[in-house]
Computed example of a mutant assay.
Amino acid sequence: MAGGGRGGTGWSSLPADLLLAIFALLSSDADRVRFRAVCAAWATAAAAWCPRPWLVGSRTDRSGRGGGTVSSFWLFRPAGAGAALLRPFAATVPEGLDYLSSSRGYLALADPSVSPKAVVLVNPVTGRRVRLPPIGFFKRWLDVTTVVLSADPGGAAEWAAVAVGFPTTSLAYYSSAAGAWARLDFAAPGYAGVEHYSGRFYVAFGSRICALEADGDAPAVIPLERVDDDGADGSDDEPKLPGGSGRRVVETHLVECDGQLLLVSVHDDVVYSSDDDMGGLAVDEGGSKGGGDARAVEVHRVEWLWDGLVRLVRETDLGRNALFLGRNRAFALSAAEFPACRVNCVYLVDRQGHPDGVVRVLDLENPWACREETICPDDATGGSASSAGWARRGWFFPNY
């Protein structure tokens, strides 16, 4: 690497745009990691490359067996094509482990044959592993849905994690300094969303938002008081759609997007009474390929007021961003940086555990434009596709 050219120039002095073009053509993550390790100039050039989001999941048969087989797909948009596709590829994931969720460039995995189960964090790009101790007070380990990290364990002096089960009977808080899990009581009858935002963990179920207070030896979940524009006190934890119609919330997510914290709710079997009811809703009525029940996604921005009060403000425009929702940590990406994404849309992983599971792409701007897509993962299993389902699926964004 020392020399090689006239005028004292060397490999480290190659133009950044040329280095980035070479980096984008590399066929494996291992080669990309080696590329970044060559020198500071190459690492800087590679940092400008925008990786594509993955869909990751563990496959199982109808009896619930067959765990530990992880499949992965790139989300990409072919040149000249309007629809995004999910292309299978072989990610570097340890064999025999089930996929749970993902956060900060790490997959949260567990060995289905070991009891009590413990989470191992794996960066499939760099190969780094971080083993976490078992969570002894979680009784329904097969239903663990989310493990959210505060920072990259490989680069932070101290970091924390929150684990969530389904249905939510408690949360688990892990501190790298303490090296142990602590129980956080948070009783809820369904799926809860978690996000680490502005230096703090937040958890939500329905329209209820809580802050996680981690100071001291006994972490606690503190409800935030909500103020509505109509003067209500925000005590309804499971709101229906506007107009009083439709089913209740079945999934809740907290997502950081452009520096804002969003509360995103997924509604099931939507019934609407007027066009006004649909403002700011992304809707799939189940008519696209793959069929299924109707879905609607509603987005609110969390507006921070005074004395710990918050207000939920309906959002209908995500700008150039797209939301990626699954029963794990959700995230937002900008289509300006990630061309495979459609602007102002929601990529919703649907039908967890079913062989005909799909990804629904819902349009927030105009639900009547029939722009929804249904992306069916094809993992090249051939004839076994009809008998193989997904025990868990979720979005993952790699960290190089």
Results as ranks from 00 to 15, higher is better:
residue 140 R to M: 12
residue 253 H to R: 06
residue 167 P to Y: 02
residue 20 L to W: 05
residue 390 W to P: 08
residue 299 V to G: 09
residue 68 G to W: 06
residue 138 F to L: 14
residue 50 C to H: 14
residue 144 V to C: 14
residue 88 P to T: 05
residue 251 E to A: 04
residue 309 L to K: 13
residue 352 Q to C: 10
residue 338 F to A: 08
residue 88 P to R: 13
residue 339 P to Y: 07
residue 126 T to C: 07
residue 201 F to V: 00
residue 316 T to S: 11
residue 75 L to M: 15
residue 76 F to M: 15
residue 51 P to S: 10
residue 162 V to T: 00
residue 260 Q to V: 05
residue 93 V to H: 03
residue 56 V to K: 00
residue 177 A to W: 07
residue 367 P to V: 13
residue 278 M to N: 03
residue 186 F to Q: 04
residue 351 R to D: 13
residue 296 A to W: 14
residue 347 Y to K: 09
residue 298 E to R: 13
residue 244 G to C: 05
residue 121 L to K: 10
residue 294 A to W: 14
residue 357 G to F: 15
residue 279 G to S: 04
residue 381 T to G: 08
residue 382 G to N: 09
residue 342 R to H: 13
residue 102 S to F: 00
residue 91 A to S: 11
residue 208 R to N: 13
residue 283 V to T: 04
residue 224 L to Y: 10
residue 198 S to L: 10
residue 47 A to D: 15
residue 37 A to H: 12
residue 28 S to W: 09
residue 185 D to K: 11
residue 316 T to A: 11
residue 22 I to C: 07
residue 315 E to N: 01
residue 144 V to K: 04
residue 197 Y to Q: 08
residue 76 F to W: 09
residue 76 F to P: 00
residue 242 P to N: 12
residue 110 A to T: 04
residue 226 R to N: 00
residue 385 A to K: 15
residue 159 W to V: 08
residue 47 A to P: 06
residue 386 S to I: 07
residue 281 L to D: 10
residue 394 G to F: 05
residue 388 A to F: 07
residue 120 V to Q: 12
residue 225 E to V: 14
residue 166 F to C: 00
residue 109 L to D: 01
residue 23 F to V: 01
residue 21 A to M: 10
residue 395 W to Q: 09
residue 284 D to F: 08
residue 39 C to A: 01
residue 212 L to P: 01
residue 377 P to T: 07
residue 100 L to F: 09
residue 92 T to G: 00
residue 320 R to M: 06
residue 165 G to H: 12
residue 119 V to F: 14
residue 102 S to V: 05
residue 80 G to H: 04
residue 365 E to C: 13
residue 129 R to I: 10
residue 242 P to Q: 06
residue 27 S to G: 11
residue 358 V to G: 10
residue 137 F to L: 09
residue 39 C to Q: 03
residue 366 N to A: 12
residue 165 G to M: 08
residue 364 L to H: 08
residue 259 G to L: 11
residue 174 Y to A: 01
residue 237 D to A: 13
residue 114 V to E: 05
residue 31 D to F: 06
residue 78 P to Q: 01
residue 221 V to T: 00
residue 193 G to Q: 02
residue 247 R to W: 12
residue 305 L to T: 02
residue 214 A to Y: 05
residue 237 D to K: 10
residue 135 I to G: 05
